[in-house]
Computed example of a mutant assay.
Amino acid sequence: MKVLIVDDENKARRLLRCIIEELFSEITTILEASDLETGVALIKEEQPQIVYLDIEMPEYSGLQIVEFLTEEEINFQIIFTTAYNKYAVDAFKITAIDYLLKPIDKTELKLATKKAITTLNKANINTQLNHLKNTFKQLALNKIALEIPKGFIFVSHEEIILFEADGMYTKVYLDNGHTEFICKPIKHFVEQLSNLTFFHKTHRSYFVNIKHIKELSKRDGHHLVMSNNMTIPISKDKRNEFMELIRETFNI
């Protein structure tokens, strides 16, 4: 039997390979890919029976596999390996697709792989994947995924007070008093939330939720006081645009 591991983390691929080799003598070939495009090419060329597919990868999510393969080409079983927290895992429970939470547990891997071997060619994986993608879209309608060391947390847009740049990282201040340190630049969040008019960049280092503005002061240069009492500067080059936004939003 032939399987494929698709994960951008080399360490994660090595660990999964070792466990599979230990548990399944019937799996004779283990292929690896560090991104979805390479994985798709291997699927077409090697025809694996099982694909262990990470969701969060650079460029393309594992869920986008249906965009690269026709329904006829998806004739293998998929087991997602994911660091998503329990809220996102609920989406998997709605479908028949299996998943493994990182760090991988041997017992769970064994059960998922045995199930995949048993059900090979018995399920419409394409339909299941599309169902799963739609479920994640519903989950994301009013929430944003924040990647933390233990996985992901999902917070509603209204819970976010502001984003603060810290080099190539971003601090996310939430209305519950917590601050999350995210391994992505602030530009990532500005682009992701560009369609939401209540988020605005007042300064190269700050991206604020105007719903959480408590005070706007013109003293000592324009600045904001947010609901968590942080003082946020409004840079000169953004001042006119921001003041116009405030006037339109609050009818002042």
Rank of each mutant, 00 (worst) to 15 (best):
M1Y: 04
V3K: 03
V3R: 03
N10K: 14
K11G: 01
R13F: 00
R14E: 13
R17S: 14
R17H: 12
I20Y: 07
E22M: 08
S25M: 07
E26H: 05
T29V: 15
T29W: 00
I30Y: 04
L31W: 04
E32K: 08
S34W: 00
S34K: 10
S34T: 05
E37V: 15
G39T: 04
V40S: 01
L42I: 13
L42Q: 07
L42N: 06
L42K: 12
I43R: 01
E46W: 01
E46Q: 12
E46A: 11
I50Y: 02
I50D: 04
Y52M: 09
L53M: 04
D54A: 08
I55M: 01
M57A: 06
P58W: 02
E59K: 13
S61D: 15
V66W: 07
E67K: 14
F68G: 02
E71Y: 02
E71P: 10
E72P: 02
E72L: 06
E73D: 09
F76Q: 06
F76M: 09
I78T: 09
I78V: 15
F80K: 05
F80C: 07
F80I: 03
T81G: 01
A83M: 07
Y84D: 05
Y84F: 14
A88H: 10
F92D: 04
K93L: 11
I97T: 10
Y99Q: 04
K102E: 07
K102C: 06
L111C: 01
L111S: 09
A112R: 11
K114H: 15
A116N: 09
I117Y: 01
L120K: 14
N121H: 12
N121R: 08
A123T: 15
N124E: 10
I125Y: 06
Q128C: 13
L132D: 12
K137N: 12
N142M: 05
K143A: 10
I144N: 09
A145R: 07
E147R: 13
K150P: 00
K150L: 11
F152S: 11
F154I: 01
V155R: 14
V155C: 10
S156P: 00
H157C: 03
H157V: 04
E158Y: 06
E159R: 14
I161A: 03
E164L: 07
M168H: 13
Y169S: 04
Y169H: 12
N176P: 10
T179R: 10
E180P: 02
P185M: 08
I186R: 08
I186V: 09
I186E: 06
K187Q: 13
V190C: 05
E191Y: 03
E191C: 05
Q192H: 03
Q192K: 15
L193F: 05
L196C: 06
F199D: 10
F199L: 11
H200W: 12
K201G: 00
T202N: 02
T202M: 01
Y206T: 00
I210A: 00
K211N: 15
K211F: 05
H212Y: 12
I213D: 01
E215K: 12
L216N: 02
K218R: 05
R219M: 07
D220H: 14
D220A: 11
D220T: 09
D220L: 11
H222T: 14
H223R: 09
H223C: 03
L224F: 07
M226A: 10
N229M: 07
M230G: 00
I232W: 05
P233I: 10
D237E: 11
K238W: 02
F242H: 08
F242W: 06
L245Q: 13
R247D: 05
R247T: 04
F250R: 06
N251C: 05
